[in-house]
């Protein structure tokens, strides 16, 4: 015989609630552990100047990562973003060298990147080609276009706006960081507070359910591919200003870091889970790790190995701490 007390829901113990909350913040604990580690082992790591330095270094990844977050949330992937960033930078420099009035070289760069993103979207959503394959092909197209336009040369004539946004400061803060923060903010607001943002999550979580609910999933996927390309293009346009030149391979190597940072923060590769706050944490984990290893004395032949081990450890920690939710 049951008593009335047996039927009522048992209150969740406080420690369990705390643990559940802690699990959500697994990447944050990883980040704090890294900060603590490098603060102990390096004299130069824990300073305001270096904190600003880390923000500068993750800024381009942040711009690119905003678009990648949209793409991953729909359970797609874009392997062409870093090559599109290079391409956009090359287009902006190419037309600047060709004396096209400003800001048209930048507009042309963003339009070109957006057009390539649209092709990615159409290929994925309308033609049904896996985004992995479409964007892999697009990475070659973007890379080939960069090479064709530069003929293997480095372009040093850059749009003034790129130089300002890439290297300039306002009130002591780099424009690059401000552009990155604004991009992340807009991305967050769109995902969190707009209907389109909800459609992105719905499309990634369950495309069939989303379609039954009346969501144009093909349109959503095409749109996120364009957003991914536009943020990559913006990263390229600003990035050439940071480097002081446009080379045919300038940002190609950022692909793994950009996708890695988003996933490291907790955005699922399988769609529907994650968001910009998670991306920010992932970016900071990667930024702190890369920066920290340069601040401590590590055998150069060991640096890549150590980076890999710490990244793997961070991922394992995230997954274990999060109760294998997204494994």
């Amino acid at each position: 015989m049951s008593t009335p007390n047996d039927d009522s829901p048992k209150p969740t113990p406080r420690w369990r609630a705390f643990l559940a909350k802690s699990r959500e913040f697994a990447p944050v604990w990883t980040l704090l552990a890294l900060i603590l580690f490098f603060s102990v082992y390096s004299d130069s790591f824990l300073s305001l100047e270096n904190a600003a330095n880390i923000l500068n270094q993750v800024a381009l990844l942040a711009i690119m990562g905003t678009g990648i977050t949209f793409v991953l949330l729909t359970a797609q992937i874009d392997l062409s973003v870093s090559y599109m960033a290079t391409f956009a930078g090359v287009v902006a420099a190419y037309y600047t060298a060709g004396h096209l009035p400003q800001p048209w070289p930048i507009v042309a760069a963003l339009l070109a990147a957006g057009a390539l993103g649209w092709i990615n979207g159409v290929g994925t959503a309308r033609l049904g080609i896996p985004s992995f394959m479409v964007t892999l092909a697009m990475s070659l197209i973007a890379s080939g276009l960069s090479l064709y336009l530069t003929r293997g040369r480095i372009l040093f004539e850059l749009p003034a706006l790129s130089e300002t946004l890439g290297s300039g400061r306002i009130f002591g803060v780099k424009w690059l960081v401000i552009v990155a923060a604004l991009t992340l903010l807009v991305g967050h607001l769109v995902l969190k507070y707009t209907r389109f943002g909800r459609y992105v999550y719905m499309t990634g979580a369950s495309p069939k359910a989303a379609e039954l609910a009346g969501v144009n999933t093909k349109g959503v996927i095409t749109a996120v591919m364009v957003i991914g390309a536009l943020t990559a293009g913006l990263a390229g346009v600003v990035g050439i200003g940071r480097l002081g030149s446009a080379t045919p391979t300038a940002f190609d190597g950022m692909l793994i870091d950009a996708i890695g940072a988003v996933v490291l923060g907790g955005t699922s590769l399988f769609g529907g889970v994650g968001g910009i706050p998670q991306t920010i944490v992932g970016l900071l984990i990667l930024g702190v790790l890369r920066n920290g290893l340069d601040q401590v004395s590590v055998d150069i032949y060991m640096k890549t190995l150590i980076t890999g081990i710490i990244l793997l450890a961070a991922l394992v920690f995230n997954i274990l701490f999060a109760g294998r939710k997204e494994a």
Binding site: S44, S47, E49, Q57, R242, L243, A250, G253, N291, D294
Partner: peptide, 17 residues
């Protein structure tokens, strides 16, 4: 690794350190 983007990051860190 001959990579100008990596150079930028490395040198920002060196200048800080």
């Amino acid at each position: 690794d001959w990579d100008v983007a990596k150079v930028a990051q490395l040198w920002e860190n060196l200048l800080n350190r």
